[in-house]
């Protein structure tokens, strides 16, 4: 199995731990990821509200590059924002011929061609649909027994172009985490917006939404929240202190689902970037972390 890999700006910055854990886990599972050469910013949703057409053109360059680099190979996109923007561009040009023409003209100027054939997919989709839970179960060397996880999907991987899970009540990550041996909580806010895009514009609302998510996980006595999105992780992790300051104490670590996979596969905390959490998850994860030789052995295997 091999895929083109589109990291996006976040995974090179605040979401570095996501990249580290995605690469480590895919490597462990024998799935090859080839980073898209010379990729550019996806076009991002905030920008989309101002200049939609240019943001489609930005996205389209990446899609064109992907088709050139590895024809008929799906592109894995871990960041929900990028995943949506790239997917939306594929859909929009199908639905709106005028926009398709504009995008084509823009690409022509750069001598690029995009046939709208590359599939944009999320790692969760690849892991659950292509690889399958049985394979994942077999790779587990250290089951996450007793770890209580609140599964948090955020909004943009299942909406609006859901291809692999339910748009309101997705369950694929629940099943995946269960395959790792974790206890998955009933978490009613699994696709409720984290407020990430509000923290820059209307911070008090952003903080409130974050607090609600963190507090609900805490009330349900989760050890931590697992997420699939670098924007949600950043928002919930980095603004947790502000949210707590405004609304009440809440100490709820938020980690990437791939970090949990890595630990279950025997990787070390460092290999999956757990040291990058601001609200540390080590309290509940320490017992699953391989240290020294054990970790190295697990990695070598």
């Amino acid at each position: 199995m091999q895929y083109v890999y589109y990291p996006g700006c976040s995974l090179k910055g605040t979401g570095r731990a996501y990249e580290e854990s995605v690469l480590a886990v895919f490597d462990k599972l024998g799935i090859q990821l080839a980073e898209l050469e010379d990729w550019n910013c996806c076009g991002a949703t905030a920008y989309m509200s101002v200049d939609e057409h240019r943001s489609f053109a930005l996205a389209a360059r990446n899609l064109a590059l992907a088709e050139r680099q590895a024809p008929d190979t799906a592109m894995v996109v871990p960041c929900s924002g990028c995943y949506l923007t790239l997917n939306k561009t594929c859909h929009i040009v199908k639905d709106y011929p005028e926009i398709a023409q504009e995008v084509k003209t823009a690409l022509d100027r750069a001598g690029l061609e995009w046939k709208n054939r590359v599939e944009v997919r999320h790692p969760l989709d690849i892991l659950v649909q292509d690889l399958g839970l049985d394979t994942i179960r077999q790779a587990v060397v250290r089951p996450l027994k007793g770890l209580k996880v609140a599964p948090y999907y955020g909004c943009q991987i299942v909406r609006p172009y859901s291809t692999f899970d339910h748009q309101i009540y997705p369950t694929s990550m629940d099943h995946l985490l269960e395959a790792l041996g974790a206890t998955v909580m009933h978490y009613p806010l699994k696709t409720k917006c984290c407020g990430g895009s509000m923290t820059g514009t209307v911070p008090e609302v952003g903080k409130r939404l974050s607090y609600i998510l963190l507090n609900e996980a805490k009330k349900r006595e989760a050890d931590l929240m697992a997420t699939v999105c670098p924007l949600c992780q950043f928002n919930l992790d980095a603004y947790a202190r502000d949210a707590a300051h405004a609304y009440g104490p809440v100490n709820m670590p938020v980690v990437y689902f791939t970090q949990l996979m890595g630990l279950a596969f025997g990787l070390s905390a460092k290999q999956v970037g757990l040291q990058r959490n601001i609200v540390s998850a080590m309290g509940s994860l320490k017992k699953f972390c391989s240290t020294g030789a054990a970790g190295a052995a697990a990695t070598a295997k």
């Binding site: 309101i168 009613p188 806010l189 609900e216």
Partner: peptide, 8 residues
Amino acid sequence: GGVTDWAM
């Protein structure tokens, strides 16, 4: 819109 057991 939805039914939930999430209390505010």
